[in-house]
Amino acid sequence: MDKHWLQQQVLERLAEDLLQVEQAARAAHETATHEENIAENKYDTLGLEAAYLATGQARRAEAIRQAMAHWRQFRPRAYDARQGIQLGALVCLIGADDQQQQLFLGPDGGSMQLVCGAQRVQVISCEAPLGKAMLGKCEGDEVSLPGAPARQQLEVLWVH
Score class of each variant (00 low, 15 high):
L87D: 01
L87E: 12
A89S: 15
L90G: 02
V91Y: 03
V91S: 02
V91M: 02
C92R: 12
L93P: 02
I94P: 01
D98A: 14
D98C: 09
Q99Y: 07
Q100D: 11
Q101M: 12
Q101K: 12
Q101N: 06
Q102P: 01
Q102V: 13
L103F: 13
L103Q: 10
L103C: 15
F104R: 01
G106S: 08
G106V: 10
P107M: 04
P107Q: 11
D108R: 15
G110S: 13
S111T: 15
S111Y: 15
S111I: 13
M112G: 04
L114R: 06
L114W: 03
L114C: 06
V115Q: 15
G117R: 02
G117Q: 03
G117V: 04
Q119E: 08
R120F: 09
V121N: 01
Q122K: 06
V123N: 04
V123S: 04
V123I: 13
I124Y: 01
C126I: 14
C126T: 14
C126R: 13
A128N: 08
P129Y: 13
L130F: 10
G131P: 04
K132P: 08
A133P: 07
A133M: 09
A133G: 10
L135R: 09
L135Y: 05
G136N: 09
G136Q: 07
E139L: 01
E139K: 15
G140A: 06
E142H: 07
S144R: 11
L145M: 15
L145T: 11
G147E: 14
G147T: 09
A148E: 13
P149V: 10
A150V: 14
R151N: 06
L154M: 00
